[in-house]
Amino acid sequence: MSNERKIALVTGGNRGIGYEFVKQLGKAGFIVILTSRNAEAGHKAVKALKESNLTVSFVEMDIENPVSIGQAMNLVRDQHGKLDVLINNAGIYLDENEELVKMDPSILEKTLKTNFLGAYHVIRTFLPLMEQQGYGRIINVSSEYGAMSEMSSPGVGAYKLSKLMLNGLTQLVAAETNPNIKINAVDPGWVSSDMGGPSAPRTPKQAAESILWLATIGPEGPSGGFFKDGKQLNW
């Protein structure tokens, strides 16, 4: 295996924008690891991508389970010895239009467990692979709903809070980490996917292309920022 090719991992890569991330990274010459908690869906996605001659493999990983994340990291370390790019894409949207304090608390708890704690555990588990080579690019797929200004509008409270916390995590880890490891949050916009629904104006391909520049930024590139279409957003 050539050490020149960069290794990328995408969580929730079996569908939607995650699948597009895997495809676009593969086309750019990356060796890509697609993860999802559903092994059947993951293998099916990888099979389709391999038909386009992309170097893609599947690793089962449940981001709600730190043991599963650790097992996935061990596999990546044993097979590749490094990780260059990590895209925290897996997420859920369970909100119905209810007030935060009136919704079933389990909706908030499950949303935070996946969208915030899931990303936290993935980052803390895979970061040592980046630290040992002094290089890494981490992209957290967030949402404009996670901006502080959105908290003064009612509705979608569980999802908003989960992305607000993910944005905070992005800033904090960027501040605490080797500056050669760049970590940024991105808003893909309203994307036509299982989460966004069929009426959304952007395709997964458009969204992925607007984000992937962060996977290859140089040493002068941003870290600890929040971006949409290459432009910086306010936290």
Rank of each mutant, 00 (worst) to 15 (best):
T114R: 06
E51G: 01
K102D: 15
T35S: 14
R77P: 00
D187G: 00
N180K: 12
E4D: 14
G189A: 03
V156N: 12
L129W: 05
N65S: 06
I181V: 12
S223Q: 12
I211C: 09
E176Q: 15
G12K: 10
L34M: 13
S153Y: 09
S199G: 05
G136P: 03
N53L: 02
E4C: 06
E96C: 06
G13C: 10
A48I: 06
S223D: 04
A185F: 04
S143V: 01
D104G: 09
L54W: 01
G70P: 12
I63L: 08
F226A: 02
K23F: 13
G157S: 10
A185C: 12
N184C: 13
H80P: 08
S142N: 08
I33Q: 13
G134F: 07
M151P: 00
N178Y: 13
H43I: 07
Q232T: 09
Q206Y: 02
Y93N: 10
K47R: 12
A8K: 05
R77N: 14
S192D: 13
H80W: 12
E51Q: 11
G118K: 13
N97Y: 14
A45H: 09
Q206M: 11
S162N: 07
L83F: 07
G91K: 04
I183S: 08
R77Y: 06
T125S: 15
A147K: 07
E51R: 03
E99F: 15
E209I: 13
K228N: 07
A175W: 09
A41P: 03
I69T: 02
G224F: 05
I107G: 02
T203M: 06
N38M: 08
G196K: 06
E40T: 06
I63E: 07
G196T: 03
V67Y: 03
K160Y: 08
V85K: 04
I17Y: 05
V59S: 02
L129M: 11
K231S: 15
V101R: 14
G225P: 05
N178M: 14
K113V: 02
P179I: 14
Q24W: 11
P154K: 05
K23P: 14
S57L: 00
D62I: 00
S210H: 12
L83M: 02
T203D: 03
I183Y: 11
M61F: 03
T114S: 15
S162P: 14
M1V: 07
Q232L: 09
N97A: 10
E109L: 06
A174Y: 11
G12V: 08
R137Q: 03
N89Q: 00
K27E: 14
E150W: 00
I92S: 04
L112S: 07
I107V: 15
G146I: 03
K205F: 04
Q79C: 11
D194F: 06
E109N: 11
N89I: 00
A39W: 01
N3S: 12
K6T: 10
L86S: 04
A207S: 15
L54S: 05
